[in-house]
Simulated scan of single mutants.
Amino acid sequence: MDRHSQHRPPDRSGTSPTVVCVLITIAFDADVDAQAGAYATGILAMMVSGAFAVTVSTARRGHRPAAIGFALLTLVLLYALVYNIVDKPDGITISGFFIAGIILVSLISRIARTTELRADRIVFDTLAHDQSINIVVDRRQTGDSAEYRAKELEQRGSSPVPGPAHALFLEIDVGGPSDFSDTRTVHGVEVGDYRVLRAEAPAAPNAIAAILLTLRDATGVRPHCYFAWAEGSPLRHMFRYFLLGRGDTAPVTREIIRSNEPDPDRRPGIHVGS
């Protein structure tokens, strides 16, 4: 069973470099001579990297004479790079501003898109329910029955997980955090007596929110999701989320759901135990 959970957002992949390039061009009055140092610095840095990579590759293959030759070439190019930086420091300055600009614009873009679901469509390979959907979020370690048994006991001891039936576990394997939109397939597996939903996504909170909303719409049942509080500094978790797609998952998931579902009565329930 599947559904479209949101429209595909516009592709902004080339926006950041373009904006920074335009700003640099304006700053130097589109003067090619003024930007020559930066161009030479970039080209030499690329050549040094390539020569070094070839040196390492030939050395690992046991081609000693070739490795020595490429090593000498690397040293020559490195000398040229250092001399160019000393002679025309504006090159490394422009390169530094370009890198800083890319990072800044990319960070602003990522923050602005924090509450997106990051999924065009959620697809379940199997889907069954008994008019009650209680989901425990788990970060898989061993993936055996003992892990799920311990996790369920932990949640039942700290959260209001209702009923005697086993909860449904949800596991998100985080991939590239810059992949903002795609089809997510949720696979159902059984480990002993436990039922587990598994999916891959660029960020855990966005994927969990999209799955909960899709479950609600597909079944007509308002799901409830149970988390444990993350240990550590909230600031560290914030940076982990922006860079790696993981962090203090529960509050971010709740905010994403709030941003995408205006009716509080229709929002999936988010519960966090100590």
Rank of each mutant, 00 (worst) to 15 (best):
V137C: 14
A250F: 11
Q35C: 12
A207P: 06
R3P: 00
S132D: 12
M238Y: 14
I256H: 03
Y79Q: 05
F180Y: 14
P164A: 15
Y83T: 10
A59V: 01
L235H: 04
D11I: 10
H7E: 13
K88W: 04
L72E: 00
I99W: 10
A204Y: 03
N260E: 04
G143M: 05
R222T: 11
L78A: 15
P10V: 15
H187T: 13
T126M: 04
R139A: 09
R156H: 07
L215E: 06
M238H: 10
F70P: 01
Q35V: 14
A119P: 00
F52C: 11
D265F: 04
H224R: 15
L107C: 06
Q6W: 09
G220L: 08
A100D: 05
D263Y: 01
G101V: 09
A167R: 01
A36H: 14
D125R: 00
L77D: 11
G91F: 04
T15Q: 14
L244A: 12
H166A: 13
Q141F: 07
M1V: 15
F180R: 13
A203M: 05
A199N: 03
T74L: 03
S158I: 12
F227W: 08
R121P: 00
Q6M: 15
L153Y: 11
Y226V: 00
D29F: 14
T74F: 06
W229V: 08
Q6I: 00
V82M: 06
R64S: 09
L107Q: 09
G188E: 11
A201M: 01
T93G: 11
I26D: 12
L107R: 10
Y83K: 14
P9D: 11
G220H: 06
I133R: 05
